[in-house]
Design a protein around this nucleic acid. Structure first.
Lengths: 195, 195
DNA sequence: ACCTGAACACCGTTCAAGT
DNA sequence: ACCTGAACACCGTTCAAGT
């Protein structure tokens, strides 16, 4: 087995065991049984390592997600993906109990180190997922390749806002309002105003 | 001047010079002319320092009614207004207790007619405010006069997302992340990327 | 009570040196 | 071409010791 694969396997195992883990150079290298220098040779930066690991994980878990269907407009696909995240938030009572859990877990208690790392783990999973989608769309040229960080942050904020609005007493046409908001957000990220 | 103030001043200066900066223990301590231990004495954790600095920045950075100051770019003014809403959400513990109130009032109880109308009233105040800002900017021609409803909805969602993120265990550079998100949102509403 | 600075246990990256 | 591991320049936190 090639060194590169050993490194990726070690990293994947560590993430599987604990999604909180930071995948530090030394930890991954030790687990893979290689030196830090060797790891750096194959992955010029820690970020490069993480990106590679993530693409594999997402490819494995969701092979046929909407983002890959390049026959549809980029913005429609991005909105669908965001909606997929939102679906997990539930509607009505489900949304309320879901947010109760979030509240009890992350907002009510003092933000101790434990609480903080737990939330970070949760947050990072979402961020990575969104970043992955943007990466795919960037490969198609649907948006510039630059740094996605601000756009990821922005989309996560919109998702947070929408999911909390699902838990709050809602207005009449939730679905329509959400759709409009999601398309405004998608267009903001993809740069153009109309398809 | 007390040590504590010297530390806060040094940190504020560093952020003013570069909003990206991480405010490391040693850098702030050196600039303030105190030891790292002393800094730790006054601020038990780096996060405590950052929270304190942020509250001060938000307290001092808000001018009154920025929307009418037509000498400045529309997007800057809109962002300032949104920031003003956000300032009410507080930072750190304040944000947590604020969201606890929202949770207990609107999410935890069954959405009875009473709860629902109470929330609607609260929601409409925010919506009217945002709509007012968009109206002013539309008068200047900064955005089309069409129906603002979807844009108002969108901005309220972003504000909801940001304020809940303040209550959740936050990452390092909250200020920078919020600023970037607010500008993306403002540009999405104003239609163009530049003033 | 306030402050010091060394020490600890971590980071990610670089690089001369080996095979 | 691939790999090693020491070295560098950082982190945040702890803590015995001083005043």
């Amino acid at each position: 087995m090639h060194t590169r694969e050993r490194i990726l396997k070690a990293a994947a195992e560590m993430i599987a065991e604990d999604a909180t883990t930071t995948l530090s150079v030394r930890a991954v290298a030790a687990r893979a049984g290689v030196s830090t220098g060797s790891l750096r040779f194959h992955f010029p930066t820690q970020r490069a390592l993480r990106d590679e690991v993530l693409t594999r994980i997402y490819q494995h878990f969701i092979p046929d997600d909407p983002i890959r269907d390049s026959s549809r407009p980029a913005r429609d696909r991005l909105v669908d993906c965001l909606r997929q995240v939102l679906a997990a938030a539930g509607v009505g009572d489900e949304a309320r109990t879901a947010w109760s859990a979030v509240y009890q877990q992350f907002i009510a208690p003092e933000p101790s180190a434990k609480v903080r790392t737990a939330y970070r783990a949760y947050e990072r999973v979402s961020a990575d997922r969104v970043e992955y989608w943007l990466g795919v769309l960037a490969d198609e040229g649907a948006l510039p390749r630059e740094d996605f960080a601000p756009k990821v942050q922005f989309l996560l904020t919109v998702l947070n806002g929408l999911s909390v609005q699902r838990a709050l007493p809602s207005g009449e046409s939730v679905l329509q309002a959400e759709t409009e908001t999601l398309y405004i957000a998608a267009d903001a990220v993809l740069g153009s105003g109309s398809p």
